[in-house]
Amino acid sequence: MWVVSVEELTLSQAQELRRGTVVLACLALLRKPQYGYALLETLDDAGVTVDGNTLYPLLRRLEKQGLLTSEWNTDESRPRKFYRVSPDGSRVREGLVREWQDLVASISRLTKENE
């Protein structure tokens, strides 16, 4: 039988956990305008690992939903598209932050009770 090691299982479950946090991290970071690749690097440094092929389309979708606005910056030799949070995006971020804190509180309570 093919057995998946505990380490691999933990890794894939952890990935599921992180998936939803990428949006929140983007909404938090993009209070300052930023372009795709730089945002990816910042996220990476902050420990929120996300693939480019997930992040770049995600930014577009958030823009389409009105949570982000974008602007082309042509000051440098390489034109880049800068994203920043819209007023709607800020409100969503506040809601998500509250949700996140509630989750952290309830999960830590749950995990403590079962120790």
Partner: peptide, 9 residues
Amino acid sequence: QELRATIAD
């Protein structure tokens, strides 16, 4: 245009 810049970056 964005994809080209991103790949180059």
